[in-house]
Amino acid sequence: MSDTTIKKPRPKHLDLKVIRLPLPGFVSILHRVSGAGLFLMLPVLLWLFGSSVGGPEAVAQAKSVVANPLVKLVLFGLLWAYLHHFCAGIRFLLLDMHKGLDLPTARKSAGAVLVVSLTLTVLIGAKIFLG
């Protein structure tokens, strides 16, 4: 029985254009991408945080910067990055504790991470940016 499975040719290359990433792999690479994005934007986030808790002038300055649609878009992306990193991170912690390791469950939880983080991004983003 195992002979039949071995004979199936397996791809030996790692060509990104040819590989079709399974859902858990997709969540994994997005975890890296979102983490890198958050790290790169740390100065912006710290500046915004510092201004938001500063005096009235600092708050007004931060508000005028955030009023820019491009800044809003970046912040929206960062909101997604935080939420994805949060949800995927909890999934990885559970996997570390050997919870949900079997393939069907791992696929489902990966899908759940994508859906939950995107939904929360839209809901919280709408609340923050549309009032």
Binding site: R32, G35, A36, L38, F39, L42
Partner: peptide, 9 residues
């Protein structure tokens, strides 16, 4: 956390 993550990358 960022230190470990960025170092991994």
């Amino acid at each position: 956390h960022a230190w470990v993550g960025v170092r991994d990358i």
